[in-house]
Amino acid sequence: MRRLCAAALLCAALPLPAAMHVMVVGGLGGEPQFEERFGQWSEQVASGSATAAGSPDRVHRFVGAEARREAIEGRLRQLATQLNADDQFVLVLLGHGSYDGSEYRFNIPGPDLTGSQLLALLDRIPATVSQLVVNATSASGAVLERWQRPHRIVVTATRSGGERVATRFGGYWAEALASGEADRDKDGRVTAQEAYDFAVRRVEDAYKADAAVVTEHARMAGGDAASFVVARLGGEALFAGDRELVALRAQQDEVERRVDALRAQKTQLVEDDYYARLEPVLLEMARLGARIEARLAALGVAGDRP
């Protein structure tokens, strides 16, 4: 059972070591079905991102008439001055994009935002701030290389600017932020890598189910996507603030390193021997899990994760 509300409330009281700020833009749909779709996706992304940001206050959503260039530029400029070193920033663009061979454009009400303009705004954010930019629009592949920076992970819904058909990737990214299935290692955190893998797989499955030619091929580049948390599920958000939980989490980390070490030996061991060695370590982990759950219960939050 998910207790996101309880987690969010407690998170507000227990500040995270570094802040994450999220900006979600739902672009111009052009048709009612796309307007509705982009609005819905942006809402889902905002809601899921709030679990990682720790508070809905750190998530800004621009959709419909609000998603105009001045508003987006203004917020990005503001963030560039407000973000602290070690903070994290996530930008998610949902909607239609286009590429004329030299310039990418994000379609929004009023004048479009070009790839160059968005890049300049993103580059104003200090390099000490880890960034994740998810451009889920059509033709988004055009910006992948240009936007990439050492501190910035860039995800695009398409392989290149030539993939111009409306994409499905954004919807599945939004779904990943609340999905226990996306959280493959069941640690209660959905990383950018997990969300990306989930969305890519869902896109593949969707086109396969429709027996349709695949018109989008997502890409991701830069940074450590496996460590960049984009959503937290269940009581995970509490771990950062409670001393006892922090200590238990540290013990879990230590045990997990032993699991990793054993996994690395898997191919060299007979299968039965491998699992015989693994079981006591996993039991140790399970006992820690039980203690964490007990602590969460004491804090008033059910520890079950989806």
Binding site: D185, K186, D187, G188, L283, A286, A290
Partner: peptide
Amino acid sequence: RRHLLQALETAPRFRPAQKLLLEMTGEE
């Protein structure tokens, strides 16, 4: 048991699987 270990091998913090492991070993 084998499938449970395989589940936890991939996701060591997978709480429902942990519970079942403890249950199968008689600890819970």
